[in-house]
Simulated scan of single mutants.
Amino acid sequence: MCISKDAKVAVVMGSDSDLSVMKNCIKVLKDFEIDYEVMVCSAHRTPDKAAAFATNAHNNGIDVIIAAAGKAAHLAGVLAAHTPVPVIGVPIKSSTMDGLDSLLSTVQMPSGIPVATVAIDGAENAALLAVQILSIAYHELRHKMIDYKKSLAEKVEKKNIELQNKLSEI
């Protein structure tokens, strides 16, 4: 069961090879009980499909688009150019420049076409950012995010206690 029948995220990958990174994004969306759809769509090989998808995203109930691509990494920018929906770009590490090319292509957008960009292979953070964006309209997600961040703090505190115990044995 999804937390809201209305909240929906599209996860768009430039290639099916991006799934190995984007599975972390999908897992977070599942954990937060957010409805999502996943597709492969290339900014260069299927530009008409990319434009049509982005143009119709808001009419199809998509609230946030997460776009992952490597190398030239134009997917997020192309989608953002055609939609009023927030777009989060995930630059995928490629053999070329260790993903720096993807990062720069995703983050360097012209004025008026914003793409929120996460770290190279930052699929988990992309999903968490989508949750935070959605929490503006879907307040139950804000409570889940508060609980999530509390659990992160608890994990760090537990590690600190373990470290302190190890240090006392030195």
Rank of each mutant, 00 (worst) to 15 (best):
A68P: 02
K155G: 02
A72E: 08
G70I: 06
C41W: 01
T46G: 02
M97W: 10
A7R: 04
G14K: 07
L129P: 01
N60S: 11
I92G: 07
S17F: 05
K150S: 15
L167T: 10
D48H: 00
D147T: 12
I92R: 03
F53R: 03
I120G: 11
A52W: 00
T96V: 15
A123K: 05
L134N: 05
M97I: 04
N24I: 00
V90W: 07
I146N: 13
G61N: 08
A54I: 08
I26E: 12
A7K: 03
R45E: 07
V131I: 15
T83N: 07
S95A: 11
V118H: 03
V156C: 05
I88W: 00
I3P: 01
A10H: 09
F53A: 04
L29S: 10
M22G: 03
A68K: 02
L103S: 06
A68S: 10
R142M: 12
I62K: 06
D31S: 11
P47I: 00
I113L: 10
K159R: 14
T46K: 00
Q132W: 00
A126T: 09
E124I: 11
P114I: 08
H44P: 08
I146W: 02
H139F: 05
L100V: 15
I136V: 15
E124D: 09
E169A: 13
E33I: 00
G89S: 09
K27F: 04
V28S: 06
T55C: 04
T106C: 13
I161K: 14
E154P: 02
V118W: 05
Y36P: 03
N160F: 10
T83E: 04
S94Q: 09
A127G: 10
L100M: 15
V12L: 12
L141T: 06
M145L: 15
E154W: 01
T106K: 08
S94T: 15
L167V: 14
I92T: 04
G70M: 02
I92N: 06
K27S: 14
Y138V: 13
L128Y: 08
G61M: 05
V107T: 13
V21M: 08
I88D: 06
A119K: 12
L100P: 01
L104G: 07
S135Q: 12
V38E: 11
R142C: 08
A7S: 14
V131F: 07
